[in-house]
Design a protein around this nucleic acid. Structure first.
Lengths: 222, 222
DNA sequence: TTGTTAAGTTAACATTGTTATTCAATCATC
DNA sequence: GATGATTGAATAACAATGTTAACTTAACAA
């Protein structure tokens, strides 16, 4: 893996000709697209800023013109993915389905989302929130944090549980607690699969089934 | 150059006096102890090999005399923590209790362990182990086949589930899958509480109860 | 033309994990 | 005690990473 010194011809590190000059908005979008692709392919740690820049035909410094640091890329990508989750929930059509069916669908889409976006999932639900000690000044484009998409998603689950309890499908109990327990079960599956990929897990589909079954039978009336 | 270099007194970042020369076994132990402390305090990514060495009054190179790389430290420390969990499981006295009672106790001790040692828990089950991408060949002494403590702990759960299925307390099903699902539920609770301390959770005792109830009713015969 | 602005580059900095090489303390043996 | 091997530890570096300071160039308005 030895890379020699920078030779003048081939551009492993040095750029050849200048890239097209894009507007800030377009460059931003292009960076996000490239970053997402590489993050998904190589993982967060496995992705370097240089690699992203190279894919764009741009120097690494350019990335810092549009994003304060590497994690900002992931954060923004995650926010997009989270919106997808909300969409996924909506697509489960919770309002108009039989509630048990709806819960089942919700669990499926939650797990499906997590396993389809393990990077994002890890950042959203498994990352230690740092004390934000760093000496970073605020970013030009960085607005205030919006109302959390995650809370919206949890509210959907909670509403569904309330409906199940009210209709007598679930046995009575504290709706919030039940919703949290169900979330824990789904999250436990996703996060374990993500964090411990070397464990000899059962077949995924069967595992998801087992979790859903446990949740449904665990709360439905005897 | 100059005949005798100043070996001492370079206080700025460098080493002071030579450390006590320890036997390989003792040095290994000392490294593990220091690494564990710092890992727990700063997290895996936040811990540098230099920092560990500094805490020992030793140069970073010394660490590589006793461990192949950074992740090896994490692996070994995790194994120790798992041993604690195994002890906790044994203390639940699974063999001699009615199986449902035993499962309940096992869940309690698992959750208790996680919430009592959130740092260790995070290290064990939530830390990303980097894909070991560098040009390292596997260490000769590393059998990779010896049953680690984590597998022992899981085996205890699995045995208990098998007993419950065999005795007809649980409805029939794949024992491994059921055990994994139960683990997922317990882990989901612990890891969510650890990772999202700001979420407005229900009271802890009630949550633990809800999880246990969901698990037990989820698998017991109708 | 000139001047300003914003997009981009060059060249580095500071850290990181890690290693090739050298030094020195211990210990068995003469 | 002197000698030489063993091995714990240090020095000094390597390459890669995230990141930044300082400079360059395209576009456009006056």
């Amino acid at each position: 893996m030895s890379s020699g010194r920078a030779r003048r011809g081939k551009a492993s590190g040095g750029m050849g000709r200048r890239p097209a000059r894009l507007s800030a908005v377009d460059r931003r979008r292009a960076i996000l697209a490239a970053a997402k692709e590489i993050f998904l392919a190589e993982g967060y740690e496995g992705t370097t800023m240089r690699r992203i820049a190279e894919a764009l035909g741009v120097t690494p410094t350019t990335l810092y013109l549009h994003f304060p640091d590497k994690s900002a890329l992931l954060t923004e990508i995650c926010d997009d993915s989270f919106a997808q989750l909300v969409v996924e929930f909506a697509r489960a059509d919770l309002e108009h389905a039989p509630p048990l069916e709806a819960l089942r669908r919700l669990l499926d889409s939650y797990v499906g989302f997590g396993l389809a976006h393990p990077r994002e999932y890890r950042l959203l639900f498994m990352t230690e929130v740092p004390p934000h000690v760093g000496g970073h000044r605020p970013v030009p484009g960085d607005g205030a944090t919006r109302p959390d998409n995650g809370q919206i998603a949890f509210a959907a689950l909670e509403a569904l549980v309330r409906r199940l309890v009210d209709e007598g499908v679930f046995r009575p109990g504290d709706v919030e607690t039940i919703a949290e327990a169900i979330w824990a079960a789904a999250h436990g599956l996703v996060s374990l699969l993500i964090a411990m990929p070397h464990f000899p897990w059962s077949e995924r589909a069967r595992l998801v089934d087992a979790i859903a079954e446990m949740v449904l039978r665990g709360w439905t009336r005897a």
